[in-house]
Amino acid sequence: MKDNIMLDLRNIHKSFFIGTPNEFEVLHGLNFTVKEGEFVSIVGQSGSGKSTLMNIIGALDRPTAGEYNLDGVDIEKAKDNELSALRNKKIGFVFQTYNLIARTSALKNVELPMMYAGMGRSERAERARELLAEVDMTDRMMHKPDELSGGQKQRVAIARAMANDPAIILADEPTGALDSSTGRMIMDIFHKLHEEHGKTIVLITHSPELSMETERIITLKDGTIIGESTGNWQGLKAKEGE
């Protein structure tokens, strides 16, 4: 199973039009793959193109040039509705700013992707409860986002990302707005998703320690991959096992 290619990016370019005729290229032909069940982190300086890359991986944006295959689907050929379905079923997003829907309870927020997937009312409510229990948010599930702390919001967001049991979790600086102990708790949840649920996870982070906890680290500089290294996840595992 571990050898299945989940993400396959070839020669990905991305440019933005910042006032004609200037074209501003942010990604200069990236090549990399992520295998199913892998926990990968992307690091790099601010402005190096991490989020831009992540948006392409998440099918929120299309590359200007290059080929991208997500779990067997050619993204550059997919239509808008197919991309919607793909984001709904295969991808779970976790944002730095949580992005919970205002005025809507934690439970309803977690239900949302299932609603878009067309799941029945009682079924999705039950699954949302289970997911919230898994991130230890059972007693807060009726609260609205503005009644929750940052860490609590991010836990709800992770539960929501897991709603349709996606193949891959994309997290863009999920701990960036949290203090280190709360960040630690969120990281632990990611490890649990990786180890117990076998999720493929791509994590963007500024923190070298957090990236070291992953299996593989991709380093970006000015829109180019300047290095790939192995993380210390295996080492940590071994330590834990002792």
Binding site: G58, S84, R87, N88, K89, N99, I101, L112, Y116, N164
Partner: peptide
């Protein structure tokens, strides 16, 4: 706008 973006990220179609 941000809510609409989030909904789309979660799989909302243009129709919905």
């Amino acid at each position: 706008t941000k809510e609409i973006g989030t909904r789309k990220a979660l799989g909302a179609t243009n129709f919905s």
